[in-house]
């Protein structure tokens, strides 16, 4: 195999893994909120953007250790999750139209607040991890490998939390039958707040990392939200397995398609692939018929 082909294959595999893991972190949070509170939090993308900017601000303007900046971003955005549950989602519980309007409001306010306050349209968080891994002719950024490992570890942690802890069991119970859960004495508000915190913290982590992996713009949340929606539709909304699988597909396509295609054809082919899959599986790959 030609040297250049090997280089391309290795780089593409790494890109696909990093992108997929970050997409999945976001889509998983979105799915959490949908399953547990029945809300479609379209503001999830701006939460990701805010997380990215907090980390950027802490690391470059305040100048603290970058990993600490990441933790602060996660903590602040996680707390914001509690605020969202209490003051945004709870008052409009069960009213999908109101939630959409509130989310649009949140998107507009936060995106424009950041756009106005930032002197540059595009910025970047410095690298979290310096250095390059060299194996023969292949050279890879350590940062990419570390980001992938962080992504995978968080995914495992979250899945363990859902499947192995009492709170996780309660979350699944709330997701499956809200009233049934209330009647077991489960504190649904607490479970919802917990879901919000987890979803926001995951979004902030992905945002903080992506601020260094990609770049920061006030509109970064919108681009990524389209990816999240692609993943949800493809995987079947509400399905965690669907998120994992579809996240891997979308991330891989995003890394692989540009190798052969260029320009907007990439997005078109991506949509075509998704549409073809949905023709055979209208519920998404792992979707179930939703109860009427």
């Amino acid at each position: 195999m030609a040297e250049s082909t090997i280089l391309l294959i290795v780089a593409t595999i790494v890109n696909a893994l990093v992108l997929s893991s970050m997409y999945i972190l976001l889509a998983l949070g979105f799915t959490f909120l949908f399953n547990i509170m029945g809300i479609l939090n379209f503001a999830h993308g701006v939460i990701y953007m805010i997380g990215a900017y907090i980390c950027f601000y802490m690391a470059t303007v305040v100048g603290i250790n970058q990993w600490l900046a990441l933790l602060i971003s996660v903590a602040v955005v996680g707390l914001f999750g509690i605020f969202m549950e209490r003051f945004i989602f709870r008052p409009f519980f069960g009213n999908i139209n109101s939630i959409i309007v509130v989310c649009i409001g949140l998107i507009t306010v936060l995106v424009n607040a950041v756009a106005i306050s930032q002197p540059y349209n595009v910025q970047v968080t410095p690298a979290f991890v310096q250095g390059i891994l060299k194996v023969g002719i292949v050279s890879l950024s350590w940062q990419r490998i570390v980001f992938f490992l962080i992504g995978v570890s968080l995914l495992i942690l979250v899945l363990l939390f859902i499947n192995k802890t009492k709170q996780g069991l309660q979350m699944r119970a709330v997701a499956q039958d809200l009233e049934g859960a209330i009647l077991q004495g489960i504190n649904v508000h607490f479970v919802s707040a917990l879901a919000c915190v987890i979803a926001c913290a995951l979004a902030a982590t992905a945002g903080s990392l992506m601020g260094s992996y990609l770049s920061l713009t006030p509109y970064m949340g919108n681009d990524i939200m389209i990816k999240v929606l692609e993943i949800l539709v493809l995987g079947g909304i509400g399905s965690i397995n669907g998120v994992l699988f579809a996240g891997l597909i979308v991330g891989t396509l995003d890394a692989v398609l540009p190798i052969w295609l260029s320009g907007t054809a990439t997005q078109a082919i991506m949509m075509l692939i998704i549409i073809v899959i949905l023709l055979f599986k209208p519920q998404g790959l792992f979707g179930k018929e939703v109860r009427a």
């Binding site: 250049s4 280089l7 391309l8 780089a11 890109n15 992108l19 260029s262 907007t264 997005q267």
Partner: peptide, 22 residues
């Protein structure tokens, strides 16, 4: 010529393509 999508989320694949040309 390596053409790219102006609206791509991640430009790494294009960078990989450039690097692979050596």
């Amino acid at each position: 010529i390596i053409g790219y999508d102006n609206n791509a989320v991640d430009f790494s694949p294009y960078a990989a393509k450039v690097m692979a040309t050596q």
